[in-house]
Simulated scan of single mutants.
Amino acid sequence: MSSNQGERPVISLLGTTALLFEAPGDLELTTQQRIWALAIEAGKWPEAGEAVPGMNNMMLTFSTPPRDLSALRVRLLAAWDHCSALPLEGRIIDLPVIYGGDDFGPHMADVVAHTGLSIDDIVELHSAPLYPVYALGSHPGFCYLGGMDPRIATPRRKVPITNLPGGAVSIGGVQTGVSASAGPSGWNTIGRTTMSFFDLAQDPPILCAPGDLVRFRVERVIR
Rank of each mutant, 00 (worst) to 15 (best):
I206K: 14
T176F: 05
E124K: 05
I190K: 13
I98S: 06
P210Y: 07
G183L: 11
E124D: 11
S118K: 10
V159F: 02
D121P: 10
G172A: 15
G172Y: 05
L213H: 09
L207W: 10
D120T: 08
I119D: 03
I152Y: 00
T193Y: 09
G141R: 06
A153D: 02
P184L: 12
Q202F: 03
V112E: 09
Y99A: 06
C208S: 11
H107A: 13
G186Q: 13
G116W: 11
L125T: 04
L117N: 09
G167V: 15
L207G: 08
A109Y: 04
S179M: 15
P129H: 09
S181C: 03
D203H: 08
R157T: 08
S196R: 14
V178Q: 09
M195P: 01
T154Q: 02
I171W: 08
D203Y: 03
A128K: 11
G116D: 11
F142R: 12
T115F: 07
G146D: 02
A182I: 01
G116H: 07
G101V: 13
A180C: 05
D121H: 10
M108V: 07
P210E: 09
L145N: 02
G166M: 11
G141N: 06
E124Q: 05
Q202A: 13
M108K: 01
T115W: 08
I161P: 00
T115C: 03
A201S: 14
Q175K: 02
T194Q: 14
T115H: 05
A109P: 00
N188C: 06
I190Y: 10
P140Q: 03
C208R: 07
G191T: 10
D110G: 06
P204M: 07
Y144T: 03
L130V: 00
K158E: 10
A113R: 15
Y131V: 01
H107Q: 15
P210V: 11
R156I: 12
T162G: 08
G147M: 03
N188G: 06
T162W: 04
K158H: 09
G147F: 03
G141F: 00
P204V: 09
I206W: 06
I119V: 15
L136D: 03
D212N: 09
L95R: 00
H107P: 01
V133K: 07
T162F: 02
L136R: 01
P184I: 12
G211C: 09
F197I: 04
C208G: 01
T193A: 11
P132G: 01
G100K: 01
V174P: 15
Y99F: 14
G167M: 14
G137F: 00
I98Q: 05
S118V: 11
N163I: 02
G146C: 02
M195V: 15
L207C: 09
K158A: 14
G186M: 13
I190P: 11
P204Q: 10
